[in-house]
């Protein structure tokens, strides 16, 4: 399974943080990969619509996440606008952010940045 996490928006446009993050589950520690797989299933990711959450009138500076997951020949993208109210999608997003952070501190090649 390959996952791409792309951020857009926020109180500033920061070019370095705007690049998509790629997670290849095969490169992650088995426990993390397993947790992500379970979370993708729990969130019924492949059945989700392309957009989750709509901006309220006058809202500004919210982050928009685009999650793209490839698995077994299928590929699906979901755009999430924060705050992400759906608990299972939020859990998946949190997990990926956590992996991103641990990877940032670990030696390269666990996550392609």
């Amino acid at each position: 399974m390959r996952i791409e996490l792309k951020r857009e928006g926020g109180v500033a446009f920061i070019p370095g943080l705007n690049r998509p993050r790629l997670f290849n589950l095969a490169d992650l520690p088995p426990a993390q990969a397993e947790a992500i797989t379970r979370s993708v299933q729990a969130a019924s990711f492949f059945e989700r619509p392309a957009r989750v959450g709509t901006a309220s009138k006058g809202a500004a500076d919210q982050t928009r996440y685009t999650l793209t997951i490839e698995e077994g020949g299928r590929r699906h993208s979901v755009q999430l606008l924060e705050p992400v109210e759906d608990a299972s999608l939020r859990a998946l997003l949190d997990l990926l952010k956590q992996v991103e952070r641990t990877a940032a501190r670990a030696p390269p090649n666990t996550v392609n940045r």
Partner: peptide
């Protein structure tokens, strides 16, 4: 104290976060 390690602030149309 929104989220953990959350790097942002936003206005959702009614409140600041």
């Amino acid at each position: 104290h929104y989220g953990t390690n959350y790097d942002n602030a936003f206005w959702d149309g009614q409140r600041m976060v």
